[in-house]
Each structure stands twice: as structure tokens, then as C-alpha cells.
């Protein structure tokens, strides 16, 4: 914490980490890019951005960051969007791939189809979401679908019947990209988790 601003890392191996940095700053955090285990050690929470989950997985292994990241998640909050949600899940399909398994959800990759099926939708937040004052604009880009939500996880918002914003304890995932909008509420929700965890 610096001046009451939580220091939040953005995993900057590949993807839209720059957009997340800006979104975190708008929501009141002090964002830093994380590419090494030492940088990971210095932050109170972490965002795993959108991008290509296969690419991020390769780089996590090239740099021996996979286990440090899993250990980080056992103690501190992680927010995964799109590729980040895929990495946090404990079960990934289409095709099957390794993941951190920090959340009890099953995720199907590229589940809407190709880029031509990317879309912008309006979500009605669920009662429990703490985001109830207005719709959320959700940008889906070659997005995954959360096919299974385990008992410990809670659905905060859905689109077309599928969960798209889910929390489990200190962690949060979105299959869409709040960082590609001006609305800071989803990032603010994550910052609440970072602050709660620091207490």
C-alpha cells in the first residue's frame, strides 16, 4: 500500500496488460507490470490480462513462474480476464490445457467461435454482484465460456445464460474485458478484494 493505494501487478508476459494498467489506475490502484518472480513478490494483488493463454503458459514455464504464481494465488488475490480466466480455472477444454487451478470452474476456450463472433453486450448484474447501479458493457473477444461453476464459486453476472463474472474467495474472473471500457466498477470490485486481503 502507498497512500492508501494498493499496489497491484499486471502480468505483462503478453496481452493487453497496458489497458489493465490504465484501468487499475482509474479504479484507484498503483499498477506495476510483472514479468519476474521478484516483481510478483512486491505486489498485493495481480491481474492476469487478456491475450493468448497458450503464449502466457509457455512464457510462465520458460521463466519458471508457474509455481510462484500458484503460490501467490494461495495467499493473495488474482483477477483474470479472458485468457487470465482460462489460466485460473481448474479445468480447461477445447483444447485441453494446463492451468493454475486456483478457481473451481470449468472453462471452454474460444467458445463463441472466431473473431467474427466477438461482440459487445450489456450485462445485467446479479443481485449479489455489488455492481447493481447500471448495466455493465461487456466486450467479448474470442472469448471463453465458463461451463461449470463449483460449489465455492459465486456467479456475479451472466450473459445469454452463461456465467461471465465469477468470484471465489479472494479471486475474480471475467470472460469479457472491463479494461477495454471506461467503466471502473469491475476493477474497483477487485481492488476491494485486495484491500480486504491486506487486512
Amino acid at each position: 500500500m502507498k497512500n492508501g493505494k494498493p499496489k497491484v501487478g499486471v502480468l505483462a508476459l503478453q496481452g493487453d496488460f497496458e489497458a489493465h494498467g490504465k484501468a487499475l489506475a482509474r479504479a484507484g490502484a498503483d499498477p506495476v507490470e510483472v514479468r519476474t518472480a521478484a516483481e510478483l513478490d512486491s505486489v498485493d494483488g495481480l491481474v492476469i490480462p487478456g491475450g493468448e493463454s497458450t503464449t502466457m503458459l509457455k512464457l510462465l514455464h520458460y521463466e519458471n513462474l508457474f509455481e510462484p504464481l500458484r503460490a501467490f494465488g494461495a495467499a493473495k488475490p488474482i483477477f483474470g480476464t479472458c485468457a487470465g480466466a482460462i489460466l485460473l480455472a481448474n479445468d480447461v477444454s477445447h483444447p485441453r490445457q494446463e492451468s493454475l487451478g486456483l478457481m473451481d470452474i470449468g472453462v471452454q476456450r474460444n467458445a463463441y467461435g472466431r473473431q467474427l463472433d466477438s461482440r459487445i453486450a450489456r450485462l445485467e448484474p446479479g443481485e449479489e454482484s455489488r455492481l447493481t447501479d447500471a448495466d455493465i458493457e461487456a466486450v467479448f473477444i474470442r472469448a471463453p465460456i465458463i461451463r461449470r461453476v463449483g460449489g465455492q464459486a459465486r456467479v456475479l453476472a451472466s450473459y445469454a445464460g452463461d456465467p461471465v463474472l465469477v468470484e471465489q474467495g479472494r479471486h475474480l474472473v471475467a470472460t469479457f474485458h472491463p479494461e477495454l471500457t471506461e467503466d471502473p466498477r469491475v476493477h474497483a470490485l477487485f481492488l476491494d478484494k485486495v484491500r480486504e486481503n491486506g487486512r
Binding site: 505483462a12 508476459l13 503478453q14 496481452g15 493487453d16 496488460f17 497496458e18 489497458a19 487478456g50 491475450g51 493468448e52 503464449t55 479472458c82 485468457a83 473473431q115 466477438s118 461482440r119 459487445i120 466486450v139 473477444i141 474470442r142 474485458h177 477495454l180
Partner: peptide, 18 residues
């Protein structure tokens, strides 16, 4: 417009990549 944001959005996802 929405369509252009989606087009740029995918390009954003490719940053830092090869």
C-alpha cells in the same frame, strides 16, 4: 463504433506477442 472497438480489441490482445 462497436465494430471498430472489437477489431482494435483483438489487436490489443496480441501486444507483447509474436
Amino acid at each position: 463504433d462497436e465494430q471498430f472497438r472489437l477489431k482494435v480489441g483483438l489487436a490489443e490482445m496480441l501486444k507483447g506477442g509474436v
